Simulated assay, not measured.
Amino acid sequence: MTPGARVRHAEPGDAAGLHALFAEPGAFAATLQLPYPSLAAWEKQLRDLPRHVVQLVAEVDGDGVVGAAGFEVFQSPRRRHVANLGMAVAPAYRGRGVGTQLLEAVIDTAERWHGVRRLELEVYADNAAAISLYGRHGFEREGLAREYALRDGAYVDVLLMARRARRL
């Protein structure tokens, strides 16, 4: 675990930290984010976050935001029990427990406070570390989507994974 890492709800003042996190090539290459994110876009997103979207950050004293995870609860009446998860950890903090802390906080918040019965995610099929992390937290592989996303000039596959709540 990373000593001193704290997970909390993202605030508008975190825009610069999230902007820096997702500007790192290792972060946007491992997510569906585009390179060169706009600081203004992060500021707007955090200022106007809808109630069905939860955005968490992990911060470390002296280093600021080192990870982020969030989920969006679907609003269709037939899918309100489902949310889609996304997360990223700064390359320097991978393998140090930050992802685990973020994922545990997301699962707890989604299931216990938003009534989410199913958390879904997409993860690049070659991201073994993330796949392992999700598997340790109850996510199961449900499918493979071929040429799902453009990454660095090539279309790559993603695994579709989901976790069903055990508490509700």
Rank of each mutant, 00 (worst) to 15 (best):
A149V: 12
D126E: 07
L121W: 05
Y124H: 02
L121M: 10
E142G: 05
E120Q: 14
F139G: 05
L150W: 14
A128S: 04
Y134Q: 04
R151D: 06
L144F: 07
H137V: 09
L144H: 09
D152E: 15
E122T: 08
Y124S: 00
S132I: 03
E142T: 03
V123W: 00
Y148N: 10
L144G: 06
A128W: 01
A149N: 10
N127D: 13
L144A: 06
G153Q: 02
R146K: 13
E122Q: 08
A130N: 03
E147N: 15
I131V: 13
Y148T: 03
A154E: 15
L133E: 11
A128H: 04
R146E: 13
R146A: 12
Y124L: 01
A145R: 15
G153T: 04
Y155I: 02
A129E: 15
F139V: 05
E147Q: 15
G138C: 03
G143Y: 05
G143S: 08
V123D: 01
E142Y: 02
A128N: 01
L150R: 14
L144C: 08
E122M: 06
S132N: 11
A149W: 10
R136V: 07
G135V: 07
H137P: 10
S132Y: 09
Y148M: 06
A125T: 06
N127M: 06
I131M: 10
A145V: 14
R151Q: 11
A125G: 04
E147G: 13
L150D: 12
Y148E: 09
G135S: 10
A130L: 01
A129R: 15
G138H: 02
G135I: 08
A154H: 14
G143N: 08
N127W: 06
L133S: 12
L133A: 10
L133H: 12
N127K: 07
A128I: 00
G135Q: 08
R141C: 06
D126P: 00
R151I: 12
D152H: 13
A125H: 04
A154Y: 08
L144Y: 07
D152V: 11
Y155S: 07
L119Q: 01
A149I: 07
E122G: 08
A125E: 08
L133M: 11
V123F: 00
L121P: 05
G143P: 09
R151S: 11
Y134G: 02
A154M: 11
